[in-house]
């Protein structure tokens, strides 16, 4: 009986220790610090899932990276929600797919992007050439293609 009480206690202490010791994310002072709140991360994961759930993993990181690049870009809003909900910025926002529940892969892609991986090499735009309606987007300098998306400056 004593053992039974002791075990969950150990478990709880263990969890506390783990939470306390892991997860100290600190951006380095060389680049702008990236302290995102949990809900920011969830919001980005929703956008990534809604926009690119059919894409390869690296393509999902790329979409997350574009959102992060827009935060740094003078031409775009300065907050995660500002960038994501900017009218006309993302089709998944326009058609409500952003409200789907993201899977583990999309969340992991967001964390990889926040950790600093940017497969796009600093792009602020992407589009799907099959469905893009804007002619203007074609005039942007294209950097690379990942999955179905073309990423551009």
């Amino acid at each position: 009986m004593k053992k039974l009480v002791f075990l969950p206690l150990l478990f709880i202490i263990g969890v506390f220790l783990m939470v306390g010791s892991q997860s100290t994310y600190a951006g380095n002072a060389g680049k702008s610090s990236s302290g995102f709140s949990q809900n920011d991360i969830r919001l980005i994961a929703n956008a990534v899932f809604g926009e690119s759930r059919g894409e390869p993993y690296v393509g999902q990181i790329a979409v997350a990276a574009v959102i992060l690049n827009r935060l740094e870009d003078k031409r775009f809003p300065n907050t995660v929600s500002g960038v994501i909900f900017q009218p006309g910025a993302f089709t998944a926002v326009a058609d409500g797919q952003i409200y789907l529940t993201p899977n583990a892969k999309a969340k992991k892609a967001v964390m990889d992007a926040i950790d600093g991986t940017d497969p796009t090499g600093g792009c602020s735009y992407y589009f799907n050439p099959q469905t893009a309606t804007s002619k203007w987007i074609w005039s942007r300098p294209q950097v690379k293609k990942i999955g179905k998306h073309i990423f551009c400056r």
Partner: peptide, 9 residues
């Protein structure tokens, strides 16, 4: 230093 508790996302 921001502690992003990623396990809960």
């Amino acid at each position: 230093i921001t502690k992003a508790d990623i396990s809960q996302v």
